[in-house]
């Protein structure tokens, strides 16, 4: 089997598995919506206040939803031993991992994009920043999945890895949060957003190239 075929086979397999356990797709989505609903309840439903903090709220919630969904990335494969089989295959592990992360993003990251417009309306965001919000989510959430994969690979062998995972991963998410929410904020004010978007693209490309390596090393460590 060629490398490309193996890459797509992994994506296909993970997508089929995800479709047969639909609740795992829906849960991060509900979480995302729920957290955003909590903010108006907590800070008060003042339209101008909500509008001002909307980009930050949406992005922080996306961060948390992405983090909570990370556990499903390697967990079931680790438990049933298919991860070991994957590591034994002749193909480079980093590419196979890239396949797994892509499938995971399609299942958990992409749906966030679909509900984001609804939440933007909830929080009264101006129409012109909606497109930018979707663009930042499109560029930013794959970075979250890629960086998160390193954290999951390090903690997948632990019985109680959830809390430690958030401690490892959240500090590394800071740059994405800063640039993404800032771009949305700028767009709401009618200001140019090209620098932020360019930096997000740069982060995505860097994460695509660099993140699979430590993930592969960490997985080998977790399996041994």
């Amino acid at each position: 089997m060629s490398l490309t075929a193996a890459f797509f086979a992994i994506i296909r397999r993970d997508l089929i598995l995800a479709l047969r356990r639909r609740s795992e797709i829906a849960n991060p989505l509900f979480f995302f919506v729920l957290v955003i609903t909590l903010f108006p309840l907590g800070v008060g439903a003042k339209p101008h206040l909500l509008q001002a903090i909307a980009p930050g709220i949406i992005w922080v919630s996306a961060l948390l939803a992405a983090m909570l969904s990370l556990d499903s990335l390697f967990r079931s494969d680790f438990d049933d031993g298919s991860l070991e089989q994957m590591l034994l295959s002749p193909h480079p592990i980093s590419i196979l991992i890239l396949g797994k992360v892509s499938a995971h993003w399609l299942v958990t990251g992409l749906p966030l994009l679909l509900v984001a417009p609804l939440l933007a309306i909830f929080l009264g965001m101006p129409g012109q920043s909606l497109g930018v919000l979707l663009l930042t989510l499109l560029l930013g959430t794959p970075v979250l999945s890629l960086i998160g994969a390193i954290g999951v690979a390090l903690t997948v062998g632990l019985r109680r890895g959830g809390m430690i995972l958030s401690l490892l991963v959240l500090p590394l998410y800071v740059p994405v949060l800063i640039f993404a929410s800032n771009a949305v904020e700028m767009a709401a004010g009618g200001l140019p957003i090209a620098p932020q978007i360019n930096i997000l693209i740069a982060m995505l490309l860097m994460a695509l190239v660099l993140a699979p390596w430590p993930t592969a090393a960490a997985l080998k460590m977790s399996i041994s």
Binding site: L154, T155, G157, L158, R160, G161, I164, L167, L168, P171
Partner: peptide, 11 residues
Amino acid sequence: YLGVIGLYNAI
């Protein structure tokens, strides 16, 4: 740093 220490103690 705390992440590093936490991870070391968890394994």
